[in-house]
């Protein structure tokens, strides 16, 4: 789904002593089917940016076009249109488990499709399907979401978004606080959903995730776009200037290159890729 930001500014607390420019003239075009990572230090504006895509925020000036929907500062948007938009654009907030509210897992996950007008039976079917995707079997259906472990709660919350079958999926720090295995499962699921045709935006601090999963990366710094392009090209830059860390594999690869070990230039996504590159370099 094409998404276009045109000179978008967003000011928090306008005309108060706390006035603060979170976004400062953002121009971006999203076309084609990519898994896009949006990175930047805390407070850089990356969450603010993605919240414009489902019209949770309206720009202070400029506009965001999402398919045929216009999110501008003054245009009148009908509640019905917003609902349509949010059906298309699913947003998984940071720590989404804090938003669980129903008394059973099944009710919680079927809430979104029901809310978007899907008949009850079908909504429950969609909920079951979404729960299965996140790896929760029928023994969870009638349990209270509040008695589950942290990782299970996260899965329920994600299932709640997936059940509505959005065309665009925005993930704000989806793996924060998860253990490594759960992080990997969660990201592999999103990768799978992406490969089935959903556009995915990943907001994160974790550069290892960017190296592993992203096709395109955008760095936001002080409300401006500081970098937009291929992850590999970013990792060859000095990331310190954006207060970001290099992914572990690139940090090590850089250290080796600096000391004269010539690594083949290609995408490094995993530790195994790095080991292969080192082996080739040693055999030269």
């Amino acid at each position: 789904m094409p998404i276009i930001f045109k000179d978008v500014k967003y000011v928090y607390g306008a005309k108060t002593p706390f006035e603060y420019d979170a976004l400062n003239g953002i121009d971006l075009t999203f076309e084609g089917h990519k898994l896009t990572a949006i990175v930047g230090k805390t407070g850089s504006g990356k969450s603010t940016l993605v919240q414009h895509i489902n019209a949770l925020l309206r720009p202070t000036s400029g506009e965001v076009l999402i398919d045929d929907f216009v999110n501008g500062p003054k245009n009148k948007i009908k509640a019905k249109e917003i609902k349509e938009l949010r059906k298309k654009v699913g947003l998984v907030f940071q720590f989404p488990e804090y938003q669980l509210f129903q008394e059973t897992v099944e009710k919680d996950v079927s809430f979104a499709p029901k809310n978007f007008g899907v008949p009850r039976e079908e909504a429950i079917e969609k909920a079951h399907e979404a729960l299965q995707r996140v790896g929760l079997d029928e023994s969870f259906y009638s349990r209270s979401p509040f008695e589950l472990s942290g990782g299970e709660k996260r899965k329920v919350a994600i299932a709640g978004i997936l059940a509505a079958h959005p065309d665009v999926l925005i993930l704000d720090e989806p793996t924060a606080g998860l253990d490594p295995a759960a992080s990997k499962e969660t990201m592999d699921l999103f990768k799978q959903i992406h490969s089935e045709g959903t556009d995915v935006f990943l907001v994160t601090h974790d550069m290892n995730l960017v190296a592993r999963y992203a096709d395109r990366v955008i760095v936001i710094d002080d409300g401006r776009i500081a970098f937009d392009g291929d992850p590999k090209a970013l990792f060859n830059e000095d990331l310190e200037q954006y207060s970001l860390d290099n992914p572990d594999i690139y940090r090590f690869a850089k250290a080796l290159t600096k000391r004269g070990l010539k690594l083949p230039t290609r995408d490094l996504r995993t530790v195994e890729d790095l080991a292969k590159a080192i082996k080739e370099a040693k055999h030269e």
């Binding site: 253990d179 295995a181 594999i249 790095l274 080192i278 082996k279």
Partner: peptide, 20 residues
């Protein structure tokens, strides 16, 4: 038990698997 090893340990294992 579904835990990663730290980066260093993972890399050593991956290198050994490549015959380094």
């Amino acid at each position: 038990v579904r835990l990663d090893a730290p980066f260093f340990d993972s890399l050593v294992v991956a290198l050994k698997a490549e015959g380094v």
